[in-house]
C-alpha cells in the first residue's frame, strides 16, 4: 500500500550541516534552498510563499530574541527560531 502521508521531511545531505535561516543577522538576505520539519509546518510555509529559491530578508528579532521577523514576497512574516533552524538557505548579500 502506498503511503500518502509523509509526516516529516529530512533535509537533504547537501544542506544538512549548512547555513540556516536563523543564522542570518538582521538585514541579511538569504535564498531558500530547502525546508525540513513536520509536513504541516513546511507546507504552511510554502503556502505562505516561502518556496524554494525565494529570497528572504531577516528584518529583526523580537525583544526576547525569539521569534524572528522576515520579509518574504513583500510582506512581513514571523516564525520561531527553532523552526527557522529547519530552513536551509544561502546568503546572498
Amino acid at each position: 500500500m502506498f503511503n500518502f502521508n509523509k509526516p516529516r521531511h529530512q533535509l537533504s545531505n547537501d544542506y544538512s550541516d549548512g547555513l540556516r535561516l536563523n543564522d542570518l543577522k538582521p538585514g541579511e538576505i538569504g535564498r531558500v534552498l530547502e525546508i525540513g520539519g513536520s509536513e504541516q509546518f513546511r507546507l504552511r510555509l510554502i503556502e505562505m510563499g516561502l518556496t524554494k529559491d525565494t529570497e528572504v530578508c531577516v528584518d529583526k528579532f523580537a525583544p526576547l530574541r525569539d521569534p524572528m521577523e522576515l520579509i518574504v514576497r513583500g510582506y512581513h512574516l514571523s516564525i520561531r527560531g527553532q523552526d527557522a533552524q529547519k530552513i536551509a538557505v544561502e546568503r546572498i548579500n
Binding site: 509546518f41 504552511r44 505562505m48 512574516l77 514571523s78
Partner: peptide, 9 residues
C-alpha cells in the same frame, strides 16, 4: 499545537 507562522500586517 500548530506551528507558529504569523503574518505581521
Amino acid at each position: 499545537s500548530k506551528p507558529f507562522v504569523l503574518e505581521l500586517p
